[in-house]
Design a protein around this nucleic acid. Structure first.
Lengths: 208, 208
DNA sequence: GGCCGATCTACTCACTGTCAAGATGTACGG
DNA sequence: CCGTACATCTTGACAGTGAGTAGATCGGCC
């Protein structure tokens, strides 16, 4: 790790910032948000306890940067999906599956992402990435080439909000154990598509 | 859980358990889950730092008891709603509104409720109350006198899961700021009903 | 009265986040 | 080549936390 701009990794680490983000992610994954320790993250990066201060300020800053990076990764994955030429339901289903998959593969990170307001962490980029997630969902709903309303309160966005709410709610409830998603019963596995099928989605604006 | 038996609140507090729950709720409300302190809760109850140990074991036990009580309150409120004789959409709308209202009035508590798995807190009663919430929603969906399936994987429950997911997702997204619910725009205020209107809900089993 | 168990306190420990000061390296202008 | 400004990292300290252990205090019951 850290062979970039390595002028000599003795005292000046070179890119401590990303190294700290990585070790912090490791700690977070192992111990969860509740058991997270900034000192432990610094320890694993092979650096002193107060080294993070210069890069992130405090623990909120570290976790906030981690959450922001996570938002970017999630949005990247959602935007990278090949959605063209399918039915609306297929596109939404694919987006939903990706959303749930990301949450399942990054449980602690996913938890953190929706807890930043509790840390009074208000980063403009974080808000922007949340925005981006909604846009990705909306793009899947109305097709890639359709124009997107630039007003967040545009009534045309209601279906997107509905999909997001339903998928997000299912994800959190399932991760929390309120909905038993580990059940081998086929219903559990197909529950999300079944629920999405109950939604009246608008006809695609353009279908080529 | 006797109320008082207050033989004299000098050394033996009488009902320290509930007093601690109250002060813990106070601390939680003020500082959130992240800033919660068991010592502070004990302090406000006018008792030593390790007094909670005998009643709750550790901090997880205290928060768990708090969350369990919160689940009971939420379920009580949902079940107390007068739902008879209305349309399905009215009933679901009323339940949803109550759900959101509870979350808004008890933000920290509501957050805590869906975080207990992070604390490895597995209380049978807590699971039972989660169950109860689903039942309350399902009752609203199919009318009070309709029979409820006793299998959680019954396909007939899919609409209930869908409503729960959508409402819960909207609530958490709104509380987190991903959906701007403080917007004065009427859409924001009517967003939840508008989204619920997109759901294909089954015809009520019995309508009298 | 005298014991016993439940309840609460006092003390301790390892750990955490945060801060202030200082050490160490790098970059740059002379 | 030197030295000074700056970013970066370390050391040491502090208050606060959750969690144990031992002991004090009270009520009830024989």
């Amino acid at each position: 790790m850290g062979d970039e701009t390595t002028t000599g990794d003795h005292y000046h680490h070179g890119n401590l910032r990303t190294a700290l983000l990585d070790s912090a992610l490791e700690v977070l994954t192992e111990s969860g948000v509740a058991g997270f320790s900034m000192r432990e993250a610094a320890r694993r990066a092979g650096v002193s306890q107060s080294a993070p201060k210069h890069h992130f300020g405090d623990a909120r800053g570290l976790l906030g940067a981690l959450a922001t990076r996570a938002y970017r990764q999630l949005c990247d994955r959602l935007e990278a999906l090949e959605l063209d030429g399918h039915d609306v339901r297929d596109r939404v289903g694919a987006l939903a599956a990706e959303y749930v998959a990301f949450a399942g593969q990054n449980r602690a990170l996913f938890d953190l992402m929706w807890r930043m307001s509790q840390f009074d962490y208000t980063d403009p980029e974080l808000a922007e990435q949340k925005h981006r997630a909604l846009r990705a969902l909306d793009r899947g709903l109305r097709g890639g080439d359709a124009e997107l309303p630039d007003d967040d309160t545009d009534p045309a966005l209601v279906p997107s909000y509905a999909v997001w709410s339903l998928v997000h709610g299912y994800t959190t409830l399932a991760l929390e154990g309120a909905i038993d998603s580990s059940n081998p019963d086929p219903l559990a596995h197909d529950l999300l598509p079944a629920m999405l099928a109950l939604l009246n989605l608008p006809a695609p604006a353009s279908h080529s």
